[in-house]
Amino acid sequence: MSATTQTPTAPDSRTTPPSKLTTLLGDRRLPVLVTATLFLAMYIAGLSRYQNYGFGEPQVFLNLFIDNGYLLVAAVGATFVILSGGIDLSIGSVIGFTTMFTAWLVERQGVSLPLAVLLALGVGAFGGFLMGYVIHNFEIQPFIVTLAGLFLFRGLCLVISKESISISDSSVSSLAQTRVSLGLGELSIGAIAALVVIGVAFYVLHYTRFGRRVYAIGGNEQSAMLMGLPQGRTKIAVYTVSGFCSALAGLLFMLYIQSGDPLHAVGMELDAIAATVIGGTLLTGGSGYVIGTLFGVLVLGLIKSIIQFEGTLSSWWTKIATGVLLCAFILIQRAMTARKQT
């Protein structure tokens, strides 16, 4: 008969708690901490170097939110997608399209602003939904589908108009100039909207079933399916969220720039993805925090500010610094996941 001896194993070996170092290195919050520390270090370095140029003003800090609100919103969308194990390359095009579409509706068609905003958000979300639908139902790589989305929305910009449309609508400019005082300084509507989006995203990801499904799918899609989670619906929803966030980012961008242009936000999806990764979200999915994304955006924004304060540096140094950071953070991620496997 077949030998059916069960090899006895030391029963206590399986319940030994992991050592402290492993716990620390395996802690999924570590990358967020690293990014936050980096931000703090950069800020302190900036303080000591540009103290006499007003770097210490609270408004300089608040300007990070004002100048990067749209990127923050776009990066939140990217975070959802990357957490689920996917990627969205259409973000920049959807932003560009939204600026054009809204400007065209308001300026050329005389549509009222609230209606134009609703339409723009609807179109963005629907675009994301379509991409998610195609990704799920035809089992196509998200990279390819959203690349198609990238071209499609950029093309649609040019269908609307080949030239930029500046916005003279008075409600837009008054909205753009509205500042909410915080005592120490002030925030724009766009910055506040971005902070609200961060808060909502945090709540959704951690306190709703949908949010946990996003993590589950990113961790192991096959398992999520076998656990009876509606992985198709979740995936489609994730891309819809990203489309919605992109459209909202487009509106904030339009508010910030006050024009629609077919070439607005070219390549911004890459900034959003970079901010997400620098914020500690694993590109393989399943691990990361939207708070990390916030710090990722702040770090990128701070690099821009510092280069402005430096004065003599070309703005291309922003890109170089981003590239170096991205590289470093991907290496950290790699070290962490490698540690986990052994």
């Binding site: 999924r28 946990r212 993590y215 589950a216 990113g218 961790g219 192991n220 096959q222 398992s223 999520a224 076998l226 656990m227 399943g286 691990s287």
Partner: peptide, 8 residues
């Protein structure tokens, strides 16, 4: 095979 999500 264990079909759970190791990240959760």
């Amino acid at each position: 095979e264990v079909n759970l999500c190791p990240n959760l």
